[in-house]
Design a protein around this nucleic acid. Structure first.
Lengths: 155, 155
DNA sequence: CTCGTTGCAAATCATTTGCAATGGA
DNA sequence: TCCATTGCAAATGATTTGCAACGAG
């Protein structure tokens, strides 16, 4: 029901990504497929390490560097986006629809908030034009404390 | 003309920050003052290392760790904000007015764009309420290529 | 005088890289 | 077969930490 075809906005399927990798002349290896499957299946915004830990369970012969390189590949395909949180670890987002994030500064949870055209309206078009800036992506993040951390009186 | 007093939005003065540090029971050391002066005087969005390099010129006995701890202090005072770029180095913003950033993904330049109430209107209030999220700060960043990098055909 | 700060060096942690071995196309 | 990709280990680079010496209050 959910799975979009190649072009669309939602979330790519494993098959789709594999197809596009092949098109681009990349090799399809079991490690890569495992990383892609785990990543696309994640309801979360995992870090490279997080993906690594899970994939390692099924593939005892797995190097972290492979996870890093595969995630970089996914970003270049436009199937993943780096979340601009800047804490200490990079986090990757498998959701490529227009949305913004509620980021908990205590537990580092990231909550997706779907946004429609509003997000585009946010771009400071005047300044972008004035600066001849080549805008590619807009990142909107609300920093604060999630409900759980507020309840438990976290910093 | 520019310098705001304690409360306001613009940019704090060295004296003001020193006063507030003292109030909080922190000691005022020459190293600290040097870091604060350099940081507040920066028209840029310097990294800790960048501040360190400059301050080092006047204070040959300066440790990086001191710069890091002082910047952390400034953030906790609300006088500095971390820029959520997530490249590899943390960047600090001495501008505490409502504004967003045009971030060049090639040269990592950060251009401030002042915004008024628009920025507040952007917050997805519905979602924030629904999630009982305690919003503290909104970060809006436009990723792309600056004019110079576009001209020189950078990636 | 006291305790917060400093400086230094070593420790950590995420991420990258060099290189030989390997297996997908 | 051939070269992209892997795994590993070592390198890198940002940031933190432990601890003794120091100096602001």
């Amino acid at each position: 029901v959910a799975g979009a075809a190649s072009g669309g906005g939602g979330r790519a399927t494993v098959d789709d990504v594999v197809r596009r990798l092949r098109q681009r002349g990349h090799r399809i290896t079991p490690q890569r497929v495992a990383v892609i499957r785990e990543f696309l299946g994640s309801a979360d915004h995992p870090s490279a390490e997080a993906v690594y830990r899970v994939v390692l369970l099924g593939y005892p012969m797995m190097a972290v560097s492979t996870v890093y390189s595969t995630l970089r590949l996914l970003v270049s395909l436009g199937v993943a986006a780096e979340v601009g949180l800047c804490a200490n670890e990079a986090r990757y987002d498998p959701n490529t629809t227009n949305h913004c994030h509620l980021v908990c500064k205590s537990c580092e949870a990231i909550i997706d908030v779907p946004m429609g055209e509003e997000l585009l309206g946010v771009v400071p078009t005047g300044a972008v034009a004035e600066q001849s800036f080549g805008a590619e992506r807009v990142m909107l993040e609300v920093i604060g404390l999630c409900a759980a951390c507020r309840a438990s009186g976290a910093p």
